Amino acid sequence: MTTFLLVPGLYLGGWAWEAVAAELTAKGHRAVPVTLPGLGERAGEDAAGIGLAEHADAVAELLDAQEPGVVLVAHSYGIFPSVAAVDRHPEKVARLVIVDTGTPETGEAVVTLMPHLLEAADGPVLRVPTGLDPVHGVPEAEEERYLRLITPHPLRTVTDPVELTGAWLKVPTTGVFCLANGLSLEVARALYATGAPRFAKLAEPGVTFFELPTGHYPMLSTPVELAEVLVGAAAGEGRSLLGD
C-alpha cells in the first residue's frame, strides 16, 4: 500500500481529487486529498493572512504526519508549496509527481512564471475563473461542479517567493504532461537541450514521465487514467527523457 498525498492547483480544494482518490483506494492504496488554507471548505479563513509559507507549512505538516514512503502529487500551482515541503522533509517522500507543470527555482514566485495571474487580483485574492476552456476536455457535469466549488485564491500565495535549499532535488520525480495543454516529452527534451541548469534534473536517473491525452485538469477529465499513471509512477514506471 502506498500513501498518495494529493495537492491541488489554483482555486481548488481536496474535492477536486475525489474521483482519483476513489480509484486509488479501490486499488488498495491510501489517498489523502489536501485542501490548502483559504480554499475549498477552508475558504472562510483570512485570505490576507495566507501566503505561500502558510501553504507550504500545511503540506509539510501533513508530510510530517505520514510514515516515510509518501508519493506527493502536486497539480499546477500546487508544486510551489509541495516542493517547499519536500525540501524540508525529503526523507518522507518516495517520489514527487508533478502534474502538468514545471518546478520553481528558489526565489521565484508563481507570478514570476505566470504574470498574467495578476489580472485576476481583487484585493487579497485572485478572482475565480468563469469557466474552463473546452480544450481541457472536462465533462459538462464536472465543469458545473468545478464552477460551484472553486473559491477565490489567496493572492500572496502567488506573489511570495519560494525559498529552497535544494534538498528536494534528491527525491525521485515523475512528470505527468497533459498534451492538450501544450506540455509533452518533446517540449521537455527541447528545454533540456537548452543546457539551462534548471532543466538538468529532467534527464537524471530515476526521473520518469507520462503523457495523458487530455487538458490541464486530468483529475476532472480523466481520473481513472490519472490514477493508473500515479500507481505506475509510484512503482518507478514511465519513460525517461532521453531513453526513447
Results as ranks from 00 to 15, higher is better:
T2V: 14
T3D: 10
F4H: 05
L5M: 14
G9N: 11
W15D: 03
A16F: 13
E23G: 10
R30L: 12
P37A: 12
E45Q: 13
I50P: 05
I50M: 12
A58L: 05
A58E: 07
L63M: 06
L63S: 08
P68G: 14
F80T: 00
V86T: 02
R88M: 09
P90Q: 10
P90V: 01
E91S: 12
E91M: 10
K92Q: 15
K92V: 11
A94C: 09
P104G: 11
T112W: 12
L118G: 01
L118M: 13
E119S: 13
A120R: 15
A120V: 02
A121I: 06
G131I: 00
V135G: 10
G137Q: 02
E140A: 15
Y146K: 10
I150L: 14
T151R: 15
P152M: 08
R156C: 01
T159D: 04
P161S: 05
T173P: 01
T173C: 13
T174C: 15
G175S: 13
G182T: 06
S184C: 00
S184E: 11
A188V: 04
L191H: 03
Y192Q: 12
A193E: 12
A193W: 08
T194N: 10
G195N: 02
F199M: 08
E204A: 15
G206T: 07
G206C: 08
T208M: 00
T208W: 03
E211W: 01
L220H: 07
S221L: 11
S221R: 09
P223W: 04
V224Q: 13
V224T: 15
A227M: 05
L230P: 10
A235L: 14
A235M: 12
A235F: 06
L242I: 01
